[in-house]
């Protein structure tokens, strides 16, 4: 009974990093669309920064932070299961940990453009 749940969670953790990536992606894309629809890019806060920019960058930072948490938790799971250094054992936990890193990198790469591109044209 318990074994089934444990197995399911271990498998689910292999996707955790990219689930965060997906959530971040959806969040930034939706907030960008909402912001453009309501003219957030023309509301200036903090000097020359637009409200739109501030919100998007904040979301990016939150996403990266969450992604980092997943990386750390995956690493802890992996160590608890006996993995260390660059030896890729145990399998499930190592894959989860590598996937979390890949997802963190993906978040930075695919959402990084909020740092410098024009938001609403």
């Amino acid at each position: 009974m318990i074994a089934e749940r444990v197995s399911a969670w271990r498998i689910a953790w292999m996707m955790a990093g990219f689930v965060v990536w997906s959530a971040a992606f959806v969040a930034l894309y939706s907030v960008l669309s909402v912001g453009c629809a309501f003219g957030w890019d023309e509301i200036l806060v903090m000097g020359s920064l637009s409200l739109q920019r501030v919100v998007l960058v904040a979301l990016l930072l939150v996403s990266l932070g969450t992604g980092w948490v997943v990386v750390r938790v995956s690493a802890i799971h992996r160590e608890a299961a006996g993995g260390a250094g660059l030896t890729l054992k145990p399998f499930v936990e190592s894959v989860a940990w590598l996937a979390a890193w890949a997802a963190l990198g993906s978040t930075l790469f695919s959402l990084g453009p909020v740092l410098f591109l024009t938001s609403c044209y």
Partner: peptide, 10 residues
Amino acid sequence: PHLALAFFSA
């Protein structure tokens, strides 16, 4: 908008 395209492009 270009920024949204950029997410998908990247």
